[in-house]
Design a protein around this nucleic acid. Structure first.
Length: 374
RNA sequence: GGUGGAUUGCCCGAGUGGCUAAAGGGGACGGGCUGUAAACCCGUUGGCUAGCGCCUACGUUGGUUCGAAUCCAACAUCCACCA
């Protein structure tokens, strides 16, 4: 079976591992580096699909575990997949539910064959296997499916991390076999590198996954409590183990500065709930650093949120108005804040791409960080 | 005019002799959030002090008591019902 996805590195930055690429998926082309907004339940919280198109989102995430529980695969299949269901015609990447093995660990039990979940919605029991995770994602019809993995918690002893990683590799092989058996060639399948903060485990995992051979590779199990230094180190020693001609995706990252560190080390794709969640909680990203719009000092600040941002929020509203909307608990606060934070991350990825194409990513990054942390 | 009820910190509100600078909300102030069980969570919120601690506080004034937001009296204001 030949996967229909294709990836091309268009420009390699001469000063670092950063690269600009072009990822062709069933529902369109994604220009990398790219930030992918998270829409766990077939919805990027607070935004409509029109909003997402308006700010130039190229690809969004969905989550197999959550969509399996609700609305369920039968509904998604009847709708002809997630694209038609939610009215989004651009690419979608689905996480397999591997993260929920970590985040809902109190509600599940991990076994070598799979994970027994107790639904966080109604307590009902569900058994997720690698094969089932692929089946669910085929029902969803995402452009990129993720292997079912165990997102290793932190801290983990070397022994624990090794066992967890080897199980993830075993599951990856099963996911790949199921993907081939189902002949889902229009959907790509990415393997996920685990191994916690242990260099040799990360390298062993990457090698094993490359041996299985996937259309793309992800680095998972980061930003789960380890230090930023450890996270960056994990990226630094893992990316060289991944094929240069395949897309690399750093799962769950991140903050603006984290994304830049990873781009510099050769990562192409990112997703993170931070811009959307922080937006709903009043923390906004700007070129001059984080703005906590709840702070009293913004109540009568009639300037734009970020003077150098061209998003619809910054060109229309003032900090004072955003402050008021947040305090008043207005639903519009969630929407405008989310619109801005996502615009900011999408723009940061686009600017990074432009800098790489000019061969000056490191200068770009340095200038951004100097302003951001001033 | 009579009878009954009420008056607590910025607001609402619990407390009805010592464990009360006073529960719980709200508001205000600050912080956090990294493959979303998150429009959520955590701190602070009378004054002075680095701290021990001291001072001022539960409508007002006076009293009972070793001790009062809590008991008594008068007054003030508000509410309900009756004239």
């Amino acid at each position: 079976m030949q996967c229909e996805m294709s990836f091309e590195v268009e420009q390699q930055d001469p000063g670092c591992a950063a690269r600009a690429g072009r990822l062709k998926l069933a529902h369109g082309v994604v220009e990398t580096p790219i930030f992918m907004p998270v829409g766990t339940q077939a919805s990027v919280k607070a935004l409509s699909q029109e909003d997402l198109r308006g700010i130039g989102a190229q690809i969004i995430l969905g989550n197999a575990y959550h969509l399996y529980l609700r609305p369920g695969t039968e509904t998604l299949e009847a709708a002809g997949g997630i694209h038609g269901f939610m009215g989004w015609d651009r690419p979608v990447l689905t996480d397999s539910g591997g993260f929920q093995v970590f985040s809902l660990s109190d509600l599940n039990k991990v076994r070598p064959e799979g994970v027994e979940f107790r639904s966080h919605l109604d307590g009902s029991r569900h058994f997720f296997t690698p094969e089932k995770a692929v089946d669910v994602q085929i029902s969803i019809g995402s452009d990129i499916m993720m292997c079912f993995d165990e997102c290793t918690s932190y801290p983990a002893t070397r022994d624990m991390a090794g066992k967890s990683m080897r199980m993830t590799v075993d599951w990856a092989a099963k996911c790949k076999a199921q993907w081939i058996a189902r002949e889902a060639s229009s959907q790509a399948l990415f393997g996920i590198v685990q191994g916690s903060v242990y260099e040799d485990l990360r390298q062993e995992c990457a090698a094993a996954l490359v041996d299985i051979d996937f259309p793309g590779y992800a680095i998972g199990g980061v930003s789960v409590g380890e230090s930023k230094e450890e996270m960056v180190a994990a990226v630094e020693y893992t990316t060289p183990c991944l094929p240069v001609d395949k897309p690399r995706y750093l799962m769950g990252v991140g903050a603006p500065e984290d994304m830049l560190e990873a781009i510099e080390r050769g990562v192409d794709m990112f997703d993170c709930v931070m811009p959307t969640r922080n937006a709903r909680n009043g923390a906004l990203f700007t070129s001059q650093g984080r703005v906590n719009i709840k702070n009293a000092k913004y109540a009568r600040d009639f300037g734009p949120l970020d003077p150098s941002c061209t998003c619809p929020v910054c060109t229309t509203y003032t900090r004072a108005y955003l402050s008021h909307l947040y305090r008043a608990g207005e639903i519009l606060a969630l929407r405008l804040n989310t619109l801005h934070n996502l615009s900011f991350m999408l723009q940061l990825a686009a600017d990074s791409r432009a800098a790489i194409q000019q061969g000056r990513f490191r200068e770009f990054k340095k200038a951004f960080l100097a302003k951001y942390f001033s």
